[in-house]
Design a protein around this nucleic acid. Structure first.
Lengths: 339, 339
DNA sequence: CTGAAAGCGCTTACAG
DNA sequence: CTGAAAGCGCTTACAG
């Protein structure tokens, strides 16, 4: 029998069973490694046939009959390539790798509409989900509609029983303030995107304000700039009656954009404007001047998210955990010493 | 009846059918929008019940009975967070978004072992797959084991009938050479990772060599540097008997690393060393000096990959397509004018 | 240690 | 336009 295209017909449990002269149940037991329930002789025989025929279990069938899909859903807000943001892609990469290492499969969903979440989760009977990014206003609903382990990151939801992996955003702001103060800066500003909608940014801001207050410095409201686009943010930074010397931009991505914009306008950094960022993305090391920033450990965050998810998968009665990871200042070259 | 946790018991076709007083088949037809086969009255009644009960079809069951999973697998080589590479995460983001827009689900797999590919594909009966990154040596096997549409990117496989979306790497090398020549550079070097294992890098190199040849410049073999780590690559660049003035590093990521390393060693860029990169990643605009580079359109590549995949999903007899996208030089500030 | 029966939630292919 | 029957490829829960 000559066939040009190698037959890729799906081999099933039945085929293995027939070939081995046993029932499908016995094969199923071997596949699921319940070796104590099958004779050594059959184990060997069946494993050999599985290998010979290149049998790969049908996950849909398995999922349907066993109610365990081995699927974890990853939800990321946004619908315009959220992976262009290095923070998102970095944490997603770690999370995917760790899930795969556990023998689970990951489905990634970009969420622009809250209602889709339940649809995605139910449709494939995901066993659990990890939420990367801010879903605070929807957490209540998400939890109500989905009784599977749900891991949130960077949430400041006040709802009880939310599993969250976050960082000490407030402390980050505090550290930035201290660093400016130590270097003699008194005229400062805060520039961040979507401050109103992000508890994360508000915490970083609060920490910054309180840190300055400790040094007797008051940050007036007009120095808190909600960045829509870089150019207008730069306009505001440059046009205060009293000349600003330092800006806290609590997201490296945005800090880098602002730095670029200021440099293009002819300012010398850090001499004219000192900048502190947040995240410690790789780019902060390559930009000139190298960016002083608040470092968070993204890999560790991913590790906790996946670990805790699997703990809850194994033990339904695991208590709710709320992890707050530390942050630290990484001094580089973007803060000018004034004193 | 008071229940604290809202019942999230799975609603099934049967439930809808019972409530509507019809058979599951009629409900199934409505779900699948075969409206011409159902009476208007029933369509309305059933849709109302679906909505009321919050019915979400079980994709596993669907997949099992219909042989159509609505799953696309994305394969990315590597096992150590390949998404930290901005190229990978950017193209992945576009691809995921486009797949989702089509109502399909995406499963992402990081591949460190060729044999896993077939396992992943068969296990969930993926309808198609997109390969991001180099799989050249395994394409033959992958194609033999999987009779579904497979879209490769940046492949230089000589196997017939491979659907590939690539770019004109050779031309990229040519453009880099021309740009150095125009600016009076004669003493050049080529630095790239894994040259031996990457046809992509070899093409860029060949283009570069040929471009220089046209101007009467010969690139000696020792000027072709296989970058293992930045430091040793920088050592080699700096220690030629005849002083090098320009380096083509055909991957922005690596170009940026080399620039950083050279700057740390006290060299002035671009005066001491001119650099040309490849890709036009966002970072190339932010680094100092802004990186002159060969731009490829990653979004367009993703768009073609997904478009062609869905064409083949719709029409099994679609001919094999091989797309080669254009590249262009983006002159910025990292090439010094010598003449 | 083994297997026959039933069922997971859908769709296909008919018959009417 | 509608539905009864069979089946997709597994696992669960029994019985032996």
């Amino acid at each position: 029998m000559l066939s040009l295209t190698k037959e890729v017909s799906m081999v099933t449990l039945k085929d293995i069973a027939r070939e081995a002269g046993v029932s499908t149940m016995t094969v199923s037991r071997v596949i699921n490694q319940k070796y104590s329930e099958v004779s050594d002789e059959n184990i060997e025989k069946i494993q050999a046939i599985i290998k010979k025929l290149g049998y790969i279990p049908n996950s849909s069938a398995r999922s349907l009959s066993s109610k365990s899909s081995k699927i974890i859903s990853i939800m990321i807000p946004g619908s315009n390539n959220p992976l262009e943001t290095p923070y998102n892609s970095t944490i997603l990469g770690y999370v995917l790798q760790l899930i795969q290492d556990q023998g689970y499969n990951a489905m990634v969903h970009f969420i622009d509409e809250y209602s889709k979440i339940t649809e995605h989760l139910h449709s494939w009977h995901a066993e659990g989900a990890i939420f990367l990014g801010v879903f605070d206003s929807d957490i209540q609903q998400i939890k109500e509609n989905n009784q599977i382990p749900l891991i949130f990151t960077d949430s400041y939801s006040s709802i009880r029983q939310v599993i969250n992996i976050g960082i000490d955003d407030y402390k980050g702001g505090l550290l930035a303030a201290e660093h400016f103060v130590i270097n003699g800066h008194k005229e400062l500003a805060f520039v961040a995107p979507a401050i109103r909608h992000s508890q994360v940014m508000q915490q970083r801001m609060d920490g910054f304000i309180d840190g300055l207050k400790k040094a007797g410095i008051f940050l007036p409201p007009e120095r808190i700039i909600e960045k829509i686009d870089v150019e207008s943010a730069a306009d505001m930074v440059c046009n205060f009656s009293k000349k600003i010397t330092g800006v806290f931009v609590p997201a490296d991505q945005h800090a880098v954009e602002l730095m670029d914009c200021l440099k293009k306008r002819g300012y010398q950094l850090p001499k004219d404007y000192s900048i502190i960022g947040f995240d410690d993305l790789p780019i902060s090391q390559y930009i000139t001047p190298r960016l002083t920033t608040i470092k968070q450990n993204i890999k560790q965050k991913a590790q906790y998210a996946v670990d805790i998810l699997f703990q809850h998968l194994k033990d339904k009665n695991m208590p709710t955990q709320n992890i707050v990871l530390n942050v630290e200042l990484v001094p580089r070259e973007s803060v000018y010493k004034l004193n």
